[in-house]
Structure formats: structure tokens, C-alpha cells
Amino acid sequence: MSLLHVSALTARYGAAPALFDVSLDIGAGEVVALMGRNGMGKTTTVKAICGMLPWEGTIRFDDADLAGWPSHRIARAGIGLVPEGRRPFRDLTVRENLIAAARTGDWTLERVADLFPRLGERSGQRAGSLSGGEQQMLAIGRALMTNPRLLILDEATEGLAPLVRQEIWAAIARLKRDTGLAILVIDKSVRELAQVADRAVILERGKTAWQGGMADLTPDISERLVGV
């Protein structure tokens, strides 16, 4: 049984339809890459899963039907979102950002600092004054502090320097190795995704166009659907 099950998902922004027929499954502890070109519905799918826009179809998490759930309830159920554009709470310090999100569980301030030593060093610094990479680490740390069972990373490495990207990918790999966390990751870098993801789901024009094991994702499919 899958941890997250999405099928026949449709959603629209006002009158403009954005998703027509998205389906994907994530098993417990599995890392799934959600891929596709710009504007194909990746972020919209994530927003629907997190209850941030109205949708139709089926979304089940841990066998609970998420229809009509407000986003805070979905987060409480165990879906931790690292949103596109990072967006920490700018006026709070690093430490305060993490405390504000904390729920009891395995993840603590110390463990986040262990995963991202830079956050530990800057725990008293205002989040708004952090570099982009540090803000991204904070956004991931903040999501982890809610002790999710599914972590969603939306463009977690976008616009970051190569060295910082490596750090983020290393952290994702470490999460995969050391925890039983399921991860849904959206990213443009197929090469890096190939190293951490077990499976891939590719969206095209608001539909699931392909899904399968990462090993089965041939350059041909990748070029046709993702453009790389």
C-alpha cells in the first residue's frame, strides 16, 4: 500500500485549468522525482496535495482521504512541504523558525544542526539576512521539525551556487539513507535526481505522461518529456 496515492487529480486556477489527470504513488520510505518542463503542473500538483488550492479527484495519505482538508491539517497528518522560493519567516531567527514549526518526534534542533551545520552556526541570526542556500537549508529544517513522514521538496536547489546545491543533494541523500522518510522531489537536474530517486513521475500539460523506475528513464523519454 502506498503512503501517498494520487489519481485522476484535476485542478484549476480560477477559470484556467492547470491539472487534467495527474496520478502518482509514493510508498513509505521511497524517493520519487516529480519531473516535467516549466508550466506542466508540478508545483500545482504539490499545492493540491498540500491543500493549498481546490482540486478534484483522489488524494489519499496513509489511507485517509484528504478531500476538503485545510492545509494545516494535512501538514499535521505528516506531509512536510519545502515550498518553492524557500520563504522562511524572515523576522524570526534561525532557531525561532525551527521552534515555531516544531512538533514532538525524532527531529530536534540538534539533529537539524547536525544535518546542516551552517544552521547550527547561525542559530541566532535573522532568517531574512541568511544567504539563499542557508534559507533553503532552513526551509528544509523547518519542514523536518514537523516530523513528517513525507517530505516534499519543490525546487530545493533552484538558483543556488553549485557548492550549495551539492550540500543540499548530500543532505537529501543522507535523509534517504538514515531515515525512513518518503520524499517527493521536484528539480530540474535529472543527473542529480537520478542519484537519489527510486522512481520518477513525469508530467506533461497537466497529465501524468510517464512513470516508472529511475533506471527505466531512458535518455529518449527524458529528452522528449523533460527537455534534457
Partner: peptide, 22 residues
């Protein structure tokens, strides 16, 4: 934690909801 979350809710309510707080 309540005050920090409240402060955060002033800045970014959607982000607060995304960490499981109403």
C-alpha cells in the same frame, strides 16, 4: 513556540499552515 508561530503567521500565514499550524 506559540508566540513565534503567531509572529510567523503575521508574516506568512500560508507557510505557517504548511508546518501544520492553523
Amino acid at each position: 513556540p506559540f508566540g513565534l508561530a503567531l509572529n510567523a503567521a503575521r508574516q506568512a500565514p500560508a507557510r505557517v499552515a504548511a508546518v501544520g499550524l492553523d
